[in-house]
């Protein structure tokens, strides 16, 4: 008898909980693009497959500023229906592969809504930095 009442209550609570956490995003954009992204081939190391599902890297594109600094833009996609918080940092390397550290390599926290596509960007600390690495870590 108890199970009869308990089961619907638990189901309703679970549905409410899931609805509360679920924040999928709808979006619209122009189909004919004037801008053209210069995509670069990338190497990936996936240690956290769950994070890769929630904050997956779609692609990486770069551009140069007028002052000769490399700009990097990484497109992320949350394939789940829930908001996810994450932390990321860009590491920069000079022509000799030596890491250049300054405030542009500091960790930043961000969040991505369910099914949302989001861009994160960085800029090279100096014109000599041509290589980069993005590190992502789950914050939930």
């Amino acid at each position: 008898m108890k199970t009869k009442y308990l089961l619907p209550v638990v189901c309703a609570a679970a549905a409410l909980f899931a609805a509360g956490c679920s924040t999928p995003v709808n979006s619209v954009e122009n189909a004919q693009k004037d801008g053209r992204r210069m995509m670069v081939s990338d190497q990936r190391v996936i240690s956290d497959t769950g994070l890769n599902h929630r904050v997956g890297v779609v692609g990486v594109n770069t551009a140069m500023t007028a002052g000769g600094l490399l700009r990097v833009q990484v497109e992320l996609l949350n394939e789940t229906r829930s908001l996810h918080r994450f932390s990321y940092k860009f590491e920069w390397f000079d022509v000799n592969g030596m890491q250049v550290e300054n405030i542009l390599s500091a960790s930043s926290t961000d969040q991505i809504e369910g099914r949302e596509s989001k861009m994160i960007t960085s800029i090279a600390p100096n014109p000599g930095c041509k290589d980069f690495r993005l590190k992502l870590i789950s914050a939930d």
Binding site: T65, I103, L104, A106, T121, I123
Partner: peptide, 22 residues
Amino acid sequence: IQDYANAANAAVKDLLASGALD
């Protein structure tokens, strides 16, 4: 300290990308 780092990071990124210093 993390807030200062985030604010400085965002400002430097934006300023260097703007080309104002060039």
